[in-house]
């Protein structure tokens, strides 16, 4: 009896505790999960909003918000304007981040190997199969490339990072664009799939000769060996805050609709070539407008106060002009 009443008391306490804060649910991009989590944690006291964010991948996030099973969706892949209109969604970016290549080569250290978009496309198409292939060796004259088979790794689940990477490959290589294309989930010609970021990273860490694509924040957290990449200007750049910021700065926000900026293969001497903004999808016709208002409030607070949190995690905050433009869109399209 005592046990039952104690349990009841705990349950009631839980319910009442939950009832004080407003709960919102979001789902999608695993790339954005760390920053949304940190922002929500910092914002919960000042705003009284509690975020439940399910990091299930961009594809799934888009699906969930279309079905209105969550309050907002998160995707690294911008949704087409026609689809936004069809599903009554407002799209806005929140942060920017880079995608890096992680490799596992014995004797090679971080940022020693130089690669280009063309080489990456050929590796993932299966045309280049060994690390000491003539084309790679030519790019890396100062290094001894080992005689190892290349083991390409990709994200098996529907991932926005996959979209960013395949979009970059499609820009660089028309053959890639026509045979594979770009999406959150594609038909990979070669390689092994890993489930989630850990699947890819564990595989890369374990298999000698492996190469995989991961978010920059994640690569540094896990001390993965990264590579240099050649950018549009023809320079080899190292993945760091400087090159990420350079690519972000080159963005021409006025040229796109719905903030659907494409930061891949950006102009600029120091720009990192594989980069993307991550987007939030918010319904303009939510059954409960208070929930959409709460989402807006959370990100409004984060834009105002969360820039340092973002840079600590190696994300690039949006330029202030863009943040204000987003605020204007909220005012115009979100009721309440």
């Amino acid at each position: 009896m005592k046990l039952a009443s104690t349990a009841l008391a705990i349950a009631l306490a839980g319910i009442s505790f939950g009832a004080q804060a407003q709960q919102i649910t979001g789902a999608g991009s695993s790339f954005a999960a760390p920053i949304y989590g940190k922002w929500a944690e910092a914002a919960s006291a000042p705003t009284g909003i509690k975020l439940n964010y399910q990091s299930i991948g961009s594809g799934a996030g888009i699906n969930q918000i279309n079905n209105r099973t969550v309050d907002f969706g998160a995707s690294d892949m911008p949704v087409k304007a026609a689809d936004l209109a069809a599903h009554n969604l407002l799209q806005f970016p929140t942060v920017i981040g880079g995608v890096v290549m992680a490799i596992n080569l014995p004797g090679i250290e971080a940022n020693q190997v130089k690669l280009t978009g063309e080489l990456l496309a050929e590796i993932y198409l299966g045309k280049i199969t060994k690390w000491n292939d003539a084309k790679i060796v030519e790019m890396n004259r100062g290094l001894t490339m080992p005689n190892l088979a290349i083991a390409p790794v990709y994200r098996a689940d529907g991932s926005g990072t996959t979209f960013v990477f395949t979009d970059y490959l499609s820009i660089i290589d028309p053959a890639w664009k026509s045979t594979v294309g770009s999406a959150t989930s594609v038909k990979w010609p070669v390689g092994n799939g890993g489930k989630g970021n850990d699947g890819v990273s564990a595989t890369v860490r374990q298999v000698k000769g492996a190469i995989g694509y991961v978010e920059s924040a994640y690569a540094s957290l896990n001390h993965l060996t990264t590579t240099q990449l050649r950018n549009k200007a023809g320079n080899f750049v190292t993945p760091n805050m400087e090159s990420f910021a350079a690519a972000a700065a080159s963005a021409d926000w006025s040229a796109v609709q719905n903030f659907a900026i494409d930061l891949n293969d950006a102009m600029g001497e120091k720009s990192w070539p594989i980069e993307s903004a991550t987007f939030v999808l918010l319904p303009t016709d939510a059954k409960d407008p208070a929930q959409s208002q709460a989402v807006v409030k959370l990100f409004d607070w984060s834009f105002a106060n969360g820039n340092k949190i973002a840079t600590d995690l190696l994300y690039i905050p949006l330029p202030e002009g863009v943040q204000n433009a987003i605020r204007a869109t909220w005012k115009a399209q979100i009721k309440g």
Binding site: A11, G14, I15, F17, G18, Q23, T25, N52, Q54, S55, K195, G196, N197, D198, G199, S201, V214, Y218, L221, N222
Partner: peptide
């Protein structure tokens, strides 16, 4: 924390599944 039956509910196996595959 949620004990609302009409909302998504956490469970130990699913949390393990999500956490084990995380970086």
């Amino acid at each position: 924390w949620s004990v609302d039956m009409t909302a998504p509910m956490s469970s130990l196996p699913v949390t393990i599944y999500q956490y084990a595959g995380s970086p």
